[in-house]
Amino acid sequence: MKYMFYPGCSLHRSARPYLDSLAAIQEKLTMELQEVEDWNCCGATEYMSVYRAPAHALVGRNLALAQQQSNGSDTVMAACSACYLNLEKTENYMRTDEELNNKVNTALAEGDLHYDAGSIQVRHLLDIIYNDVGMDRIKNLVTNPLEGLKVAAYYGCMIVRPDVNQRWNSPEYPTVLEELMEALGAEVIDFPMKTHCCSGHMTQISSDVAYELIRRLIYGATHYEADILVTLCPMCQLNLDAYQIEMNNHFDTDYVMPILYFTQLMGLAFGIEPEELGIGREFVSAKQALAKIGAPVPDEVPEKGKPRRKKKKEEGLPMPQVSTRFNGGSK
């Protein structure tokens, strides 16, 4: 299975562990990745805040390069949610908004580039792992099942919303990451905040707003008794991990919720060494949580205080007849 790969700025910087762990599992998944040469930044949410057509031209250059370099695959895979959404949005708007398409291609022509809207498929890494590699293959690759590890699967926003090409089963309650984590042997908790916001760029704009959004998620994952929160977006990881300490200072709390990439847990389940997966580079150490599955325990273990959740009584009126998995999306 061959794909073009758009890593985006974060994977080369703050999300290096994401890239490293992807590189470590890529071969086992028989994924062949061809990096789009000389790609540029997608503009995150910032470029679009100041410019409109230029924001799409910025992304358009990446699409044009991908089309030009395409060699056996018309799929561009992104692992960062913002990159994924920006590529997908520009592709979609160029396909459906003729005026914008003309503007972007006129601009691209200045650099002797052209993009034919509709010629590139934009997909997220998780989508490819779930749908192309498939759960059966994943299960066969598991050598060290993550038994006993309680995982909160966290998607953040931009991978499932607005979901312009309807690739996910729900914009509010997707279940793909949970299925993947279960395939790795982990115990998945029902995490109602799985698609709530990590605060995005608010850490840079209003820390009060940002700390509150981060607190809700960390508190939620703690409240639902997760050992670890697993994510698929560099921005989410950075905000929840690096700013967790700041948030604790701000509210005078002592939450300890390690935040790892789903690719790191895949690597562990496949028997790859933690170091190779970039584990240890997180701010909130995952070592204590990973001790549950037999990973090396550090010397000092921070105390972990959690509010206990009341157990539901098994009596009374029956619950609505519902499968444990919600599978019907609204879109």
Partner: peptide
């Protein structure tokens, strides 16, 4: 608009 975190919850 400046406090929008681009989470698209409102949109969906």
């Amino acid at each position: 608009p400046w406090y929008c975190v681009s989470c698209y919850l409102c949109t969906v």
